[in-house]
Design a protein around this nucleic acid. Structure first.
Length: 612
DNA sequence: CTAGGCAGAT
């Protein structure tokens, strides 16, 4: 028996040599002498995936080989599945190559295992071999390969698979289509995601859920929430995972009204607040502007993990409550939950957003010395930001020069941001060179550099940057601003005339601008790169989406209530100045959510250190 | 045996 087994294993599969010693010990064990039929009863294969350790699993595998049971495909399949669950891919491959008469279950187990293990290329290769073998992949295998593409955001491979799915007539299969929708969403191809979803003959809860998530992922949470309503109208009852997607959509939208409705709905449905749903709700309230409600959810949770703590810490951070964030970190340590890399990013960001330079540097060293978290580029970015804002530009630069991690866009952007604040043109040029090398198509970088030149009065260079942009046909992406008034979201674009109150808004804006100028506000025309005269420049400046939204807020909300607006692109310097003056002249409180950072304006002052 | 769930930088 032993000899026979060794012969089976003899073909050149590198994983097999490993088994030899184990096989020998298995062969020597008492079980080996028992008759096959009796032995097979002794092995409870359903417990296979639960095998505690890999050596136990290997031993079992060997016993199966020794007793000639491994050629049974369903048995081999279970062993293969277990190997992939234990991430022992070498053994999995060895077994996989051993079995020549593979069925679709067997192929699926290998493909699914590789996808789960994050082996993108291997997974694709095995799938290719599956197709080449002449067998037709079924509706069980396809979701796994498609998910593999999702995990690696490989849109090209994903489209290829979609074509295959189409040719095989699997598009109408709910599992296959749902995975395609999810894959397209993660690759930011919302058009394709929607097309697949629309063409589904039958939609179950998961299909609706992935489509809601798809809209959120691709920057249209409002549509995701609409879809949720449509789903319920059609009689599909959401579960907890669906609700988590809805909560996320609501967080991204930033509407407090929606946030409350969603929260009420979760309560009404009686979903228990587990760590994930609870954390999602904390995040939602924080991003909709209420630290208090976020904290209430946080305090009400029975169990908190590192994500829950990090979420709450980050929330204090982007609301400009750096000290609160640090205090909460202390509580987290006290509760015995260990911080991870993301916790420290949140903490460092909280410090730079609140101007806590020394505290931030302390966290940065504590992170490495006490918690063994290796700083990645994002941690460095926060520290560059910390140095940069406090005017320590040389230290920021030397930190960048000394780090031996690949530098990314965000890092250079932090440095150039600091240069802007402190007017360091030379260093800005250096940062911009790296920035434009990495992202030559991003209009924001050119505008940033141009602003710095303009601030220093270097008009020749301003023109050069403009020329460069024209030459490469780079256009500024228009920004949008949202404002919630009377439980409704109003959206404004640059020079927007589509709003019902447009006439009033522009009239009021004109009056207001005059009042602001009397109060000392000087419009900052520098950012306007178009080759146009000053009057037109001023015209464009006055129609910034932020300004339109703010004026609408002034007109439509009673005095005494804060005006809350949300911006999808960074608020520019001119608008920042504008908002400051508005808060002084009108004595209103303005809360601006700017790419998930909150700025409170009151009496002509901004709560945080984000602008000059 | 297959699909959907929480946090971070400019």
């Amino acid at each position: 028996m032993l000899k026979f087994t060794l012969q089976i294993l003899a073909p050149p599969n590198h994983g097999c040599r490993r088994f030899l010693s184990v096989i020998e010990s298995a062969a020597l064990s008492q079980i080996q002498d028992a008759p096959v039929s009796e032995y097979s009863k002794k092995i409870n294969l359903s417990s296979l995936p639960k095998c505690k350790n890999i050596s136990q699993l290997r031993k079992l595998h060997c016993e199966l080989i020794v007793n000639g049971l491994i050629s049974e495909l369903s048995t081999a399949n279970k062993v293969l599945h277990s190997y992939t669950l234990h991430r022992d891919l070498e053994s999995a491959y060895a077994l996989f190559n051993e079995i020549t008469a593979k069925n679709s279950y067997f192929w699926s187990a290998m493909i699914g295992g590789l996808a789960r293990a994050g082996e993108f290329l291997s997974c694709c290769r095995v799938f290719r071999d599956y197709v080449r073998s002449g067998d037709r992949p079924d509706d069980y295998t396809l979701p796994m390969v498609i998910k593999n593409c999702r995990n690696f955001m490989d849109l090209q491979m994903g489209r290829l698979l979609h074509g295959f799915v189409y040719k095989c007539g699997f598009c109408s299969y709910t599992f296959v289509a749902a995975t395609l929708v999810d894959m397209y969403a993660k690759c930011k191809a919302i058009g394709d995601a929607g097309k697949v979803f629309d063409e589904m003959p039958k939609r179950d809860l998961v299909s609706w859920t992935v489509m809601i998530g798809a809209y959120t992922e691709c920057g249209n949470p409002e549509r995701g929430l609409e879809l949720f309503d449509r789903m319920r109208e059609r009689g599909t009852v959401p579960d907890k995972i669906a609700m988590i997607n809805v909560v996320n959509a609501s967080a991204k939208l930033g509407s407090m009204h929606k946030a409350r409705i969603v929260d009420e709905y979760v309560k009404m449905m009686g979903f228990s607040l587990d760590v994930i749903l609870g954390t999602a709700l904390i995040d939602m309230y924080a991003k909709c502007g209420s630290l208090e409600l976020a904290r209430e959810k946080f305090d009400g949770m029975k169990e908190r993990n590192v994500v829950s703590w990090s979420t709450m810490i980050a929330a204090y951070g982007y609301h400009g409550e750096g000290q609160e964030a640090l205090d909460l970190f202390g509580m987290m340590l006290g509760s015995g939950v260990l911080p991870n890399s993301i916790t420290f990013v949140s903490l460092l960001h909280a410090c730079s957003h609140s101007g806590l330079v020394d505290e931030g540097l302390e966290i940065f060293s504590l992170m490495q010395d006490k918690y063994g978290v290796r700083p990645d580029v994002k941690h460095f970015t926060c520290v560059v930001d910390l140095f940069g804002r406090s005017g320590k530009l040389e230290r920021a630069l030397s930190l960048i020069e000394d780090m031996n991690i690949e530098k990314d866009v965000g890092l250079w952007a932090a440095l150039i941001g600091a240069c802007r604040i402190h007017g360091d043109v030379e260093l800005a040029e250096k940062a911009a060179t790296s920035l434009l090398e990495l992202q030559p198509q991003n209009a924001g970088h050119y505008i940033l550099l141009s602003n710095i030149y303009a601030k220093a009065g270097r008009w020749k260079e301003v023109a050069k940057v403009r020329e460069l942009m024209n030459h490469q046909r780079i256009k500024k992406i228009p920004g949008w601003t949202w404002i919630e008034v009377d439980n409704k979201i109003h959206k404004f674009g640059v020079g927007d005339h589509t709003h019902a109150w447009s006439r009033e808004i522009y009239e009021q804006l004109k009056c207001l601008s005059e009042r602001l100028e009397l109060a000392g506000y000087v419009p900052d025309t520098n950012f306007v790169l178009h080759d146009i005269d000053d009057e037109l420049k001023l015209d464009i400046l006055h129609t910034h989406s932020e300004k339109l939204a703010i004026v609408f807020g002034l007109l439509a909300t009673p005095e005494g209530t804060p005006i809350r607006i949300t911006k999808n692109l960074r608020v520019c310097g001119d608008c920042h100045t504008f908002i400051k003056f508005v808060s002084r002249v009108t004595r209103r409180v303005l809360v601006v959510r700017d790419a998930n950072r909150f700025h409170h304006f009151q009496e002509g002052a901004c709560s945080c250190s984000d602008y000059w």
